[in-house]
């Protein structure tokens, strides 16, 4: 599904990623861990095509396509979705209009007619159930006046509507209480299929408990320095990152 090779990327002239290699196959959930500033968010921003981030070397192939040549909107149509770390408020653009624009843009990309009003509302109603988002949120501005937990649920709701094949969860768990985390993680799990994959950035063991990832990667200083299965995640939760840094320094 996704093949990242020797990826180097800069933001504001500073090199953050220094040769990332990562392959994610269909149906796999990969967790990305690492100390603050190690490049986790940079990697997710590069994957969605944030224009602030510049790729200076390397390649990303997504389902056979050169991802770096695609606009952010086309990456979305191709099946990439990012649950943002801090989902932004867009006052004046209602959730309904926002989702309609997103759904119909994707349909247009695949040569399909826009969804009729009844079908569209039915789709929203169905998908809201995944994370238990009330109907009244749909007439509000995007994330306008949403609490932290509601914003994250809204991200998973949008994911449910857009049905991506590859999802990035960028610290979707941060700032959530136990119940909200469960709703978000269970919502995400409900959307998993043998054809969908995910890259999850997290600091928390609870998220590992829910997601049962296939692989854990540790990013330090813009490179993946250690890889393992879920048990590596639990080890980091217990011991922190310093022992890994020491391992790296000692070669």
């Amino acid at each position: 599904m996704l093949e990242i090779k020797n990826l180097h990327a800069c933001v504001e002239g500073r090199e953050i990623l220094r040769g990332v290699n990562l392959t994610i196959n269909d149906g796999e959930v990969h967790v990305l861990m690492g100390p603050n500033g190690s490049g986790k968010s940079t990697l997710s921003n590069v994957l969605v095509g944030n224009p602030k981030y510049e790729v200076t070397e390397g390649s990303i192939i997504f389902n056979g396509k050169n991802l770096l040549e695609l606009s952010p909107e086309d990456r979305s149509h191709e099946g990439i979705f990012m649950s943002f770390q801090a989902p932004i408020e867009i006052p004046g653009v209602s959730m309904t209009n926002f989702m309609r624009a997103a759904v119909n843009a994707k349909r247009k990309y695949y040569g399909e007619e826009p969804l009729g009003a009844t079908e569209f509302l039915k789709l929203l109603r169905e998908k809201r159930k995944v994370v238990g988002l009330d109907a009244h949120f749909m007439s509000r501005g995007v994330n306008e006046g949403f609490s932290g937990g509601e914003r994250k649920r809204n991200e998973i709701f949008q994911m449910a509507v857009l049905e991506p094949t590859f999802s990035i969860l960028d610290e979707t768990d941060s700032g959530l209480d136990v119940d909200a985390l469960r709703i978000v993680a269970e919502g995400f799990n409900r959307l998993r299929t043998p054809k969908t994959s995910a890259m999850v950035i997290t600091h928390y063991q609870r998220m590992l408990d829910y997601l049962k990832p296939d692989f854990v990667h540790v990013l330090v200083n813009g490179q993946i320095v250690k890889e393992g299965d879920a048990s590596l995640g639990y080890e980091i939760e217990e011991r922190g990152f310093d022992w890994i840094k020491t391992e790296v320094e000692n070669g």
Binding site: G49, P72, E73, S76, F84, A102, Q158
Partner: peptide, 9 residues
């Protein structure tokens, strides 16, 4: 960016 990530041109 948020809107474009969701596929809105």
């Amino acid at each position: 960016l948020y809107m474009r990530q969701r596929g809105i041109p």
